[in-house]
Amino acid sequence: MGDPSLRQLAYESIHRWIENGHFPGGTATSEIQLSRMLDMSRTPVRSALQQLELEGYVRIAPKQGIVILGPSSQRIGELLELAASFALFSASASKLAKREELAELVDSLAAQYRKLAADSSGKKSGGKPPLEYAAGDKSAAPDEAGAWIRFEAELLTGLVALSGNGEMSRLLTTTMSRLRWKNNARRWHAPHAVEAAARVEELIVSLAPSEPFEACRRSLQRYVQLLKRTWN
């Protein structure tokens, strides 16, 4: 099996190269090339590639080498639905058994949302209501879009963490990584930014313990539909 620490190092390095675009989708490489890049033997590299194949990042093609998988529309849709299913399960369970914890999470998310909206409005709007300025902008500032993307990730991971299911939280993290979540900002640029803010706000409101589960299901469904339409 080889040295576990070398396998982990190989996995993390190759995963990082895929995530940061060093190996774009469709790129072909090989164990030999990766071994040279990592300055290690092929055994830990092979183990790392097998794990990456299981997670959907690469395809190991006999006699052809290693192919980096790009995110197809179908694959993206499936991954977004998977992330939504984790959130929906946790919302359902929390509304029944963890109402106080859920209420605290909703209060925290609502406060963060208001701050982000106020910051966005203050930078460009000239006094318009939060985020309405974005409808006419060609693009949002990269740091501003990044803040909204991180907030969405915190919303989903925080909600799933309430379930107390560590495996589900791990799977959500893996799913978001496979989606290249932090690299997808299109929904936070014109003409989608206003709708994106509305969908996120609607989702937060629907998570409140006093709101019926069906409202949460509908708001999450609308949010995922927006993600599918705007994913890069």
Rank of each mutant, 00 (worst) to 15 (best):
Q50V: 04
A185R: 12
V200P: 01
E152G: 08
A161G: 02
W231Q: 07
A97Q: 15
S210V: 10
K124Y: 09
Y113E: 04
L227K: 06
R59K: 07
D119C: 01
E211A: 12
L159D: 02
G127V: 08
A198M: 08
Q64E: 14
I60G: 00
N184L: 05
E19R: 09
R59N: 09
L54R: 15
P71S: 15
P212W: 07
P142V: 09
L82E: 14
S219D: 08
M176A: 07
V106R: 06
M40S: 01
R114M: 08
Q112D: 07
S13I: 05
K95T: 03
L116M: 03
R199A: 14
E31A: 03
P24F: 08
E154R: 09
D143F: 11
I149V: 10
G158A: 04
E12K: 15
E167W: 14
F151P: 10
H15L: 13
A103Y: 05
S210K: 07
T157K: 03
S73M: 07
P191E: 03
E81L: 13
L79N: 04
T230Y: 09
R46G: 04
P24Q: 10
V205N: 07
M37D: 00
A140D: 03
S121Q: 11
S94Y: 00
E104Y: 01
S72Y: 08
L6H: 00
D143H: 12
L155T: 04
W148Y: 12
L220W: 11
L155N: 01
R59W: 03
T174N: 11
L9H: 13
L203T: 15
V45A: 01
L227W: 07
E12F: 09
P129H: 03
A134Y: 01
E211C: 01
P129K: 03
Y223M: 04
N183I: 12
I18K: 06
Y113S: 02
L49Y: 00
P209D: 14
A48D: 08
S163H: 15
G77R: 03
E55Q: 15
A147I: 08
R187I: 02
A208V: 06
I204L: 04
R46E: 00
F151K: 10
L171H: 15
A135C: 05
A83Y: 00
A145Y: 01
A196W: 09
L9M: 12
S120Y: 01
V205H: 12
F86K: 11
Q50I: 06
E211I: 03
A87P: 09
L203F: 14
R42A: 05
V194R: 00
R218W: 14
Q64I: 10
G127E: 07
S125N: 06
R75T: 12
V200S: 00
L172C: 05
T29C: 03
L80S: 11
A110W: 09
D137Y: 05
V160Q: 04
V160G: 02
A110R: 13
K124P: 00
E100D: 14
H15R: 14
Q51T: 10
D107R: 15
S30Y: 02
E201S: 13
V224S: 02
A190D: 12
E78M: 11
A83I: 02
L38I: 01
Q33A: 11
F23Y: 14
E100Q: 14
R199N: 07
K128Q: 09
A215Y: 05
A87G: 13
A197E: 04
A28E: 04
K128W: 01
I60Q: 08
A10C: 02
M40N: 02
N232G: 15
A10I: 01
N20K: 10
A141F: 10
I14V: 15
W181L: 08
K115F: 08
